[in-house]
Amino acid sequence: MNMVEQKYQLIPGVELRKGSNVMIYGPTFSGKAMFAKSTFRKLINSNYGGIYVLTRETAEQLIEWLGNDYNPNKVKIIDCVTKSMTGEAKDTASIKRVTVMDLTGISAKISKFFEEFWRSGVKDVILVFDSLSTLLMYLNIQTVFRFLHILTGRVKMTGAIAFYIVEEGMHDEKTIVTLKQLFNGMIEFKEENGKKYVRFVSSLVKTEWFEIVVDENSVVIA
């Protein structure tokens, strides 16, 4: 199946199969997070269940951005920010808060959300992890790798699609190489002479760079 291409033609010619784990890679402010968010929005609007893991903004901020597209039955959030800041925050059925170092908590909560979607007949799920770079600020690559080994396996098993954001320039080459082993491909962003570009790279394909325009709500090919 070729769901993403059918419904979201960001990168022409790119097929994202179900069960794909994709790294979203590029420098700060290159449009990575907006790409992930707006793809997330598109997919939940075409009957996907969505799971968002946040380490850089709170659940409330994401909900505000989603506006009318927010529906707690379809959008499940793991907020790793609020608890690290205040320690006080109530969980709901669709919003769970953990500290960012608590990989066990994150993992168990993601798997619970997968179960809930599965049991309610929602078989298509998009997961966004924003971002692995935050995890790597607190935990070493071996630890993060073990965590991702389990998570990417689950994504594959359930046939979901998952995006993992990684900041370019924050990690050494070895870390990036280690991470890449876990993913089916990479959506790469760059900025050059004030213009932004995106391309898709995997072991099988490498598209050309496409110029993009990023605003507060979307990322579109120029």
Partner: peptide, 9 residues
């Protein structure tokens, strides 16, 4: 001895 995807704490 806890499965990583199970809330075992």
């Amino acid at each position: 001895w806890i499965d990583p995807e199970v809330e075992g704490n």
